[in-house]
Write a protein that binds this DNA or RNA. Sequence first.
DNA 1: AAGTTTATGCAACTGAGTTGCAAACTAATC
DNA 2: GATTAGTTTGCAACTCAGTTGCATAAACTT
Lengths: 136, 136
Amino acid sequence: MKDTDDKLTSRNIKPTAMRELVLDILTEQKMAISLSDLEQKFHKSDRVTLYRTLKTFEEKKLIHSIDDGTGAVKYALCKETCQCHPEELHVHFLCLKCQHTFCLSDIPIPSINLPVNFSVENINMVVKGVCSNCKD
Amino acid sequence: MKDTDDKLTSRNIKPTAMRELVLDILTEQKMAISLSDLEQKFHKSDRVTLYRTLKTFEEKKLIHSIDDGTGAVKYALCKETCQCHPEELHVHFLCLKCQHTFCLSDIPIPSINLPVNFSVENINMVVKGVCSNCKD
DNA sequence: AAGTTTATGCAACTGAGTTGCAAACTAATC
DNA sequence: GATTAGTTTGCAACTCAGTTGCATAAACTT
């Protein structure tokens, strides 16, 4: 738990039992998960608490949210030092077969030449297709 | 109405009074609009009909949908010949001040080098920031 | 230990998206 | 132009994600 605690405190999040649990679950995931997904990892849980936990984590940039168009926002861990600035963001991939959403952490979002006087704060880029697992 | 009718029939959509009206409204818009926005352009209207009209239009590629993360999917007209293939897609912009969502029709979505054995079918790319109108 | 702040759990609500069904409309055939 | 078949429209009702308010429980302060 020491490790988990450190991750929380280093992001200025008070380490409660609930939060440690949620962070551990998020750490285990190979893919992004939604609030409902998270809920189902618990035998007994309160959606609202999980919801607020995710919100807190996102605010403190411990996790980032991905709107992949499936109707439920998904969440995945940020890298240690991530501040979620536009230059740090990566592409996400939604597999239309297995419905899993991945971080393509190695693929940065290409920079865009916006029209004059437009400024960027955030970018959401989701590629939809078929992942290597589902390709046969 | 001739013009509107032609646009519908050329996309294999039967031109009903309702559909002509919706297409006309969509044509007038400078920005993408949601189902709720559309609903409010009518004095008396049925959400479900408008919903289904938008679905039909999208299926026939007369319009495309944009998930800008605001919770409501927005819609905008496609170009005449658009088939909504990945290479044809453009970037969208959500202004965090005026909350308007624009097509940046001149800015194609940059192509991405996906990991091996990943294939693309669609891409949603939304840049969020402040538009030139709201910048002061 | 008392008091203050913060987190949790429950109930309840909103709003987008959706489905089923019956009535209205359109198109096709005789 | 009446009959039928297929399509579109309108209404009711539902699901599900996200959200708020409030009361209790836990953690932190002095």
